[in-house]
């Protein structure tokens, strides 16, 4: 039986893990490769690197990080952040990434999803959606004469959450699937960093909209949150960053809890 996946995410900036300072027993707490090794030992099912290096001339740095990671860790690796062309995707895949996660560029140029999935296969094209509850409740939207489908409760944001894309998250997820995305990485901007649990309503809405796997992200604070999003939220995988970084909870603890509750976990 296919298991639910638990995925730690590493924010990487200039070849360093940004949140990794509290790690114990690591030769180099900020080294992405050492961190990846540690997560592998803990039983992570996959890894996600989010490249938050701001300047484009430093883009090559992440390729080196990916290369070194792929030499040391034998598990699936997804890389996201600043990917905007087929060339970027090819470079990352050649360096050792198994999947790439595309956010802003996919919104600005949806054709990129189609081209990339035809060229490299859907299985390696992840569309990342940052979603936020729209300010106007549905009733107001209706009064303005807009249909709720056109402007559902969750809006898509791009540029690291700074810009509203003017897209409905539900519709965008469906479109991304149609264009050839193999997976959706769904982040709730409302819940991210709150530690109050994943956004179950959002996750349910998106998992109900598509037939490709959905990774839920944003809000994990305790092991029960993972259980909730993987059962009630119907997510196929759950991602967390700071929770695992600061060892508030280990992947092992999460998984043994899931198994105890009857959720299939490795």
């Amino acid at each position: 039986m296919l298991t639910k996946r638990i995925i730690p995410c590493l924010d990487v900036k200039d070849a360093r893990v940004v949140k990794g300072v509290n790690f114990l027993n690591l030769k180099d707490a900020g080294d992405p490769v050492e961190t990846a090794k540690r997560y592998e030992k803990e039983g992570a099912d996959e890894l996600v690197f989010l490249d938050i290096t701001a300047s484009s001339e430093k883009r090559k740095i992440i390729l080196d990080v990916v290369r070194r990671t792929a030499e040391n860790v034998f598990m699936p690796l997804t890389v996201g952040g600043g990917i905007s062309s087929l060339r970027d995707i090819r470079d990352l895949l050649n360096a050792g990434a198994d999947k790439v996660s595309i956010n802003t560029a996919a919104v600005k140029n949806p054709k990129l999803i189609r081209d990339a999935s035809l060229k490299f296969g859907s299985q390696c094209i992840v569309v990342a959606i940052d979603a936020k509850l729209a300010h106007s409740p549905r009733s107001i939207v209706r009064r303005k004469g807009l249909s709720t489908v056109d402007c559902g409760p969750w809006t898509v944001y791009i540029n690291g959450g700074r810009t509203a894309a003017g897209l409905d998250a539900f519709e965008w997820a469906k479109k991304a699937e149609k264009l050839g995305a193999g997976e959706i990485l769904l982040t709730s901007m409302d819940f991210d960093g709150t530690k109050k649990g994943y956004d179950l309503d959002l996750t349910k809405a998106i998992t109900g909209a598509v037939r490709i796997p959905v990774i839920a992200s944003g809000g994990a604070g305790k092991k029960e949150d993972f259980y909730a999003v993987l059962t009630e939220g119907m997510a196929d995988a759950a991602l967390a960053a700071s929770l695992f970084h600061y060892q508030d909870l280990t992947i092992k603890e999460v998984k043994s809890y899931l198994r105890k509750k009857g959720v299939s976990a490795r």
Partner: peptide, 13 residues
């Protein structure tokens, strides 16, 4: 088949 999520992605036995 369409009733299944495709791709089959993740850890299986």
């Amino acid at each position: 088949p369409d009733r299944l999520k495709v791709p089959h992605m993740g850890w299986n036995q």
